[in-house]
Amino acid sequence: MQFLTVVIRRSLYAFLLLLAVIVFNYTLLFLVPGDIAETIAGESGGASAELMAEIRRSYGLDQPFYVQLFGYVGRVLQGDLGSSYYFNVPVLDLILGRLGPTLLLVVTSLLLAIFTGTLFGVIASQRPNGIFSHFITILALIGFSAPVFWTAFLLIILFVSMLQILPLSGLAEPLTESGTWQWYLDVAYHLILPVVSLSSIYLAQYSRLARASMMDILGSDYIRTARAKGLGQRVIIYKHALRNAVIPVITIAGLQFSHIFSGAVVIETVFSWPGLGTLAFESILRGDTPTIMGILFFSAFVVIIFNLLTDLAYRIVDPRIRLSNTA
């Protein structure tokens, strides 16, 4: 039941963070020099007189700042992120329509980076000074230093232009009927390059982390105990060591989730992936301020939810945290 208390307390904190994001968003709009109504209208509607009046009315712009703010916070909490004056539809609908592809991209990349990274790390830890260890060290350096869009372009040049085995862009071929198994296959096929590009930043980094923690753990007293029990090397590595080695990887991956989300914005624009990133980019070019602010809020929302989930997952993996009152 202690676990339930933790869940409730963490959720409450997550909610407060969310509230802070909403306040931050509105304050940001307010800080932009010039008329806030014009900021909100942006270049989208050509800013006709009726639109301006509409904006002033719906945002309550004739009221004092704190009244406007409370109104905004209240509306956002009810799921009303305003309207896109470019598409003339509620921002929330726009976002929910684009959420799926983004989550698919981000979550697949993250899982790939964590699983492959940990696996590589385990392999490398068997020979701490072997070729494979040096390989992942160099790979991590490259992954950190290469701009993600450039990595994506290089992969496109190789796999699309030269080898011609992978598709250039999009979620699926336009003629494939959505929902059929061919379509799912096609999506998976289109997903390969974006996912590889995005996870390239993190994969090698997690390998190094997993390698270091595996080496630490393999020299630890409880691994010696496991050997003294007569356990085989495989059980020792995959049962006793791996579970401990994954903990720091999960911690870092949790902390980096918002960065991975950021990377997805760039990757989506490179591959014309119809997700939130492309929407954000296009909305910025169109000056569609309500959509931009809606996406900023919603991304933070996704990150907060994800952090909450990692936090809880972490407690399940590590009993020391699960059963302690701190943190």
Binding site: V21, H259, S299, V303
Partner: peptide
């Protein structure tokens, strides 16, 4: 919590 590049873009 805010995706850094997205916030910078905004």
């Amino acid at each position: 919590v805010l995706p850094p590049l997205l916030l910078a873009m905004v």
